[in-house]
Simulated assay, not measured.
Amino acid sequence: MKMHNADETCGIAQAAVVLGDWWNVLVLREIARGHVRFDALAAGLGLSRNVLTERLGRLVAAGVLRRSLYQRRPVRYEYLLTDAGSALLPLLVAMQDWGDRWVLGDGSLTATAEGDSAEHARVHALAGTRLPDGLALPGTLGADPALVPPDAAATVLFTYPGTGIPWGDPPIPGADGCTLENRLFKDAWPDFRRAGVAVRGISTQLVHEQVEFARSEEVPHLLLSDASHQLAAALGLPVFRGAGRLRHKRLILVLDAERTVRHTLFPVVDIPGAVAESLRLAVDCARTGAGTGSGPWTGTVPG
């Protein structure tokens, strides 16, 4: 790429050199989704092997990917994000938000979605998708816990925009109700626990903000921070920009013991109804998937 002298000190220009063209961006998108092996990338992108090899080489040389040997005969590598590559995830998610709003949508700022929207189709297509291995988010317990506990019969992940936030005047449609949702999951916690179902609430708020909320509301379920947008990038989850930050739109995923999405609820308009439905779906998932986990989940949340 030809650059002007002024571009030498321009961060946008230098980032454009690394990203190069749309294939580089889509390669990074697929790797963020857990498709880290060459054949999976080629199949997912429909890209020729020669072109994919060249793009991967560029991204490795730029320091945003690293190769990790997983097979010696024949030699095979996985392509993993470096720290510099992981730092691109917010950019990818912001691009998705812009595309959803301004290209695929009508430009309206909303925390929900219409039934015929691209976001709606994308979320409901997640059924059958397995979470990438090793994906973990910091949470209110301090360490980075597993999104899906290995001993849970099923897991409910619910994403929400954020608690304790003034959404402006006029308020952003669909953004309000996060405290209510957490309280309803808290009320239903004994039922989830008896069924061996784990519950995780996820927002892009920082951990210390979540800890303060969990303490004040005596939240029994774990809250996880996706401030680095790992989960949003991994699953292509819909987001919106509100109160100065990219935030998850409200949705619910029910996963089995093998970390596979079995049910999706989106958009979540009737919050009490969605919480009750997630319990029903999770209990059914736990019942039909009995024996697939490593043992009964106790539902115990350390102090």
Rank of each mutant, 00 (worst) to 15 (best):
Q14P: 03
T179N: 05
D226C: 11
T159G: 10
G57I: 06
D284Y: 00
P220K: 07
T140E: 06
C285M: 06
L279I: 01
L52C: 07
A40S: 05
V301W: 07
Y70N: 04
T298H: 06
L157H: 13
T112H: 04
R194P: 03
R250Y: 04
D133N: 09
L65A: 02
L56P: 05
A121K: 05
G128S: 03
A257I: 05
D187M: 08
E119W: 02
L157P: 03
V269K: 07
A227I: 13
A42D: 05
G289D: 00
P149D: 11
G236E: 03
V51Q: 15
T140C: 02
L19N: 01
L157E: 09
A143I: 10
P90L: 08
A121R: 12
L184W: 02
R183P: 03
G115C: 05
A274F: 02
A286V: 00
S117A: 11
P166Q: 07
L157M: 10
R262K: 10
Y160I: 08
V103C: 06
E8N: 08
G293R: 04
G107P: 08
Q230F: 09
L253F: 03
P166N: 11
L45S: 10
Q230W: 13
T53N: 15
A243W: 01
S48R: 14
L52K: 06
R101T: 12
H263E: 15
G11Y: 09
A274Q: 02
V269W: 04
G293V: 03
V75L: 15
W22E: 14
D97M: 10
G289N: 02
L28Q: 06
F38I: 06
T298P: 02
L91S: 08
E217P: 12
G57N: 13
A6G: 02
I202N: 02
A243T: 04
R67I: 00
D39P: 00
S48Q: 14
R33E: 09
V27P: 01
R101E: 14
W297V: 00
L69M: 13
F38L: 10
W297T: 00
V199A: 00
R33H: 04
D106L: 07
L224W: 04
A175N: 10
D116W: 08
I202F: 06
W22A: 11
H208D: 12
E119P: 01
A290H: 09
L265Y: 06
V17C: 05
R55A: 10
R250A: 06
V239A: 09
T110V: 14
R250K: 12
G11M: 12
L131D: 01
V239Y: 05
A233V: 04
L28S: 01
T159I: 06
A232W: 06
Y70M: 03
T53L: 14
D21P: 04
G63H: 03
I12F: 12
S117D: 10
G99A: 14
V148W: 00
L92Q: 09
E78F: 08
L231P: 07
L47C: 14
V93F: 01
R55N: 02
T204G: 09
A121V: 15
D270A: 11
P296Y: 09
G134L: 07
C178M: 10
A113L: 06
